[in-house]
Amino acid sequence: MAEPARDRTALLAEFGSEAAILRPTLNERDLHSAAALLTVQGSPGSRPSLMGWTDGRAVDLPPEVRREIGGAVRLPSTVAGTLEELSGWRRRWEVLAAFEGEADPPLWLKARCAILEQRLDTLPPQSRADVAARLRWVLEAMAAGPNPDEAARLARLRVDLDECTASGLLEVAPEPEEPLPMEPAPGAVQTGHPAEGVSQAADPSPRTGAEKRRAVLDLLQAEDADGAEPLTDREIARRVGCSPQTVGNVRKSLAPAEPSV
């Protein structure tokens, strides 16, 4: 009994009072109200349900429950935002359970978390933060124990990583390098200013990841055609403005496939 008492003491210090802890948030009120219209009271000795749903995955939610619980509070549009909300609800229930002593979350909370979990498995990543959130979610789910969705989650994570690598989303910008010294124009005085009649070229517009890979491919193919001495990955990366890893990936794609045994 000492452990729960310490938890409550720490929570009181964090929130200020028990009333502040138990006071429902606006989102809690909206979700509770949406669930109240869908709750079906069970027979004596059985628990209430949301139109027959009492627990489990989002795929088993009745369409009306999914629509109302998913729409009562706007769902996040990113993987990172979805994981943040799910973590927030789990933390909220831990806090409430420490004071109310209930072991089972309310139906509206179970349904909301089930919807969030499904979105974590299906939303396409839009940033590095989304990829990191997906990886964190998969690892947390695996740590929780065997799950029928584990194989699908791992497959989805692999697809995400492949797609993000191909699009350049995970590409790390190359480290800045010292610019090469410029050769002065004939007859020009080295004053730090361009010679008269010689214009300075404008900076090229930024390239997309696809354009960079195309430029790398052109340089590599030109080496093969001319029989020139191959450039290093770092030199090609410097010329194109990408990372040496990108050059290495393109170079590997040109290598002939090893014959299968």
Rank of each mutant, 00 (worst) to 15 (best):
G197K: 04
R156L: 05
G241K: 02
R23E: 12
P146L: 03
R134W: 07
E178Q: 11
V250W: 05
L75C: 03
S33M: 11
A133H: 03
R234G: 07
A133T: 10
E94W: 14
L37P: 00
T25R: 08
D233F: 14
E163W: 00
A173D: 04
R134Q: 15
E14S: 11
N147W: 02
D60W: 06
A34G: 05
G101H: 09
G71W: 03
W89H: 14
D226W: 04
G42E: 00
A195G: 13
M142L: 11
E175Y: 03
L96S: 02
A111F: 03
G71D: 11
F15G: 04
A173R: 10
T82L: 04
E85I: 05
I236W: 15
L116T: 01
M1P: 04
D60Y: 06
D160L: 06
A201C: 12
D55W: 13
L220R: 06
L12Y: 05
R239I: 05
S243I: 00
T78R: 15
P148K: 01
T78L: 12
L135C: 01
A215M: 12
P244I: 07
P76M: 08
A132E: 15
S77I: 10
P186R: 00
D162I: 11
I236F: 13
V40H: 03
G101R: 14
P125A: 14
A114S: 13
V189E: 14
A215N: 02
A201Y: 04
S17F: 04
P230M: 13
A202S: 09
G70K: 10
L135S: 08
L61A: 09
L254I: 13
G241M: 01
P106M: 15
